[in-house]
Amino acid sequence: MPEDLKPKPDEFEPRIVAFFCNWCTYLAADLAGTSRIKYAANAEVVRVMCSGRVDVQFILKAFAKGADGVLIGGCHPGDCHYQEGNYKALRRFRLVQRLIRQMGIEEERLRLEWISAAEGDRVRVVVEDMVKTLKRLGPLRKPGQPNLLEVA
């Protein structure tokens, strides 16, 4: 087992909810699997047909329910299976970034990545990098702290 993939007891393991589009990033995650690329088990995928389906509420719900990070994966600009859903996702992403900043959530906890069906290794790179970032930031909800997002 590679040293960095070994779980370390007591270390904070961030939880990531990953919204992956059906046509590019979900397939990239499948490709990572068929290529037996190993990466951290912190990201759990919710499949949507298009990154454009990712509702602002989904992101807030994930943060409210205990996610330390939210990852959105879509097709590269110009490659969207539905022509331009990824552009809509990008716009919404920018909006939510500002929104969560105002709520005191670090912007780095929300990430949008373009990963094509051929980029299996990119899934590993992005997830590992996000895990690293989130470990640095620590848990979103510190023990004893009220959950301001619970209303979402």
Partner: peptide
């Protein structure tokens, strides 16, 4: 629930992979 391409094939630690699979099944 995709516990092969997105769990067993990409993770090495059985406890972590099983925990993730449980979350996905629960979802």
């Amino acid at each position: 629930v995709n516990i092969r391409e997105q769990a067993s094939w990409v993770h090495v630690d059985k406890a972590q992979a099983t925990r993730k699979a449980q979350d996905l099944v629960c979802a």
